[in-house]
């Protein structure tokens, strides 16, 4: 198929579409993107400072450093998994590169991510963690995460066409991940023998990098950054490769 279109223009339009559809009929608009993390934050802070005693004075910032990456992973992963099936009408009727759909879906969740990062940095300021020069590393930490999710989204959206219960598998994994990612607890609490497994978890790596930058005002370890970048590129490559195979029979199965 020879589609010689303007990828940037299509992705822009699709992201705008998602954004408009989601907010056009909402009186609170983008505030909804912030409401969910704020409520979660309130609950977690209540439980882990009032019920379980916690001496950390910056606990809300600490939690947000974990919650923001987790929210991005879960919403981007779930929405990209169902995106091909959700857009079946488009896939069956308009010939354009199918890869665009999962990628645009992941990119439209980055709008919410951006708002939540602003919220997180706002809390950092309020809790006496002023900007330091390592804040400039934050995009370097986030970019691989977005690439990683594009790869993951490509694979899962393709598989979901052939096995419609894929989305339930993803939803269950996300629920479990909430506890397995150090969101409301610290890395130092993890027993030595489980640390290697934890370091393989890309969300955990992201959380660790953010806490090092924002709370400790230090550069994250170089090995961590390398692992994050390489695993993300690998995932994106794998995603594109697998999707190439899967997309040929979308028409028959949608």
């Amino acid at each position: 198929m020879s589609w010689k279109g303007d990828y940037v223009f299509v992705i822009r339009n699709l992201v705008l579409k998602d954004f408009r559809i989601r907010y056009r009929n909402m009186s609170l608009g983008v505030f909804w993107s912030l409401l969910n993390p704020l409520v979660m934050l309130g609950v977690l802070v209540f439980v882990f400072t009032r019920i379980f005693k916690n001496p950390s004075p910056v606990y809300p910032v600490f939690v947000l450093c974990g919650l923001v990456p987790f929210n991005f992973f879960s919403s981007a992963w779930i929405s990209s998994t169902t995106c091909i099936v959700d857009n079946a009408g488009l896939i069956k009727r308009v010939p354009f590169p199918r890869e665009i759909i999962p990628i645009a879906t992941v990119l439209s969740t980055t709008i919410h991510l951006f708002l939540q990062i602003v919220l997180m940095l706002g809390f950092a300021l309020a809790y006496d963690r002023p900007p330091n020069r390592y804040w400039m590393l934050l995009p370097v930490v986030w970019l691989p995460a977005v690439a990683f999710l594009c790869g993951l989204g490509l694979i899962c959206s393709g598989l979901n066409v052939y096995m419609r219960d894929m989305r339930y598998v993803v939803e269950s994994v996300v629920t479990v991940m909430f506890y397995l990612v150090p969101i409301f607890y610290d890395f130092s609490l993890i027993p030595e023998r489980f640390r290697t497994i934890y370091s393989l978890n890309p969300i955990a790596a992201l959380v660790l990098a953010q806490r090092t930058i924002i709370l400790a005002a230090k550069a994250p370890p170089e090995t961590l950054m390398w692992k994050l970048s390489l695993s993300s590129l690998g995932m994106l490559g794998l995603g594109l490769l697998v999707f190439q195979k899967l997309k040929r029979r979308f028409y028959n199965y949608l």
Partner: peptide, 27 residues
């Protein structure tokens, strides 16, 4: 199929742009 690729919550103008880009046209 009529209006495939159109989204009913978008305006006519927004749908034209979206559809044109899917059909492979630049901005």
């Amino acid at each position: 199929e009529l209006g495939s690729g159109f989204h009913h919550d978008l305006t006519g103008m927004e749908n034209i742009k979206l559809n044109a880009s899917l059909l492979g046209f630049s901005r």
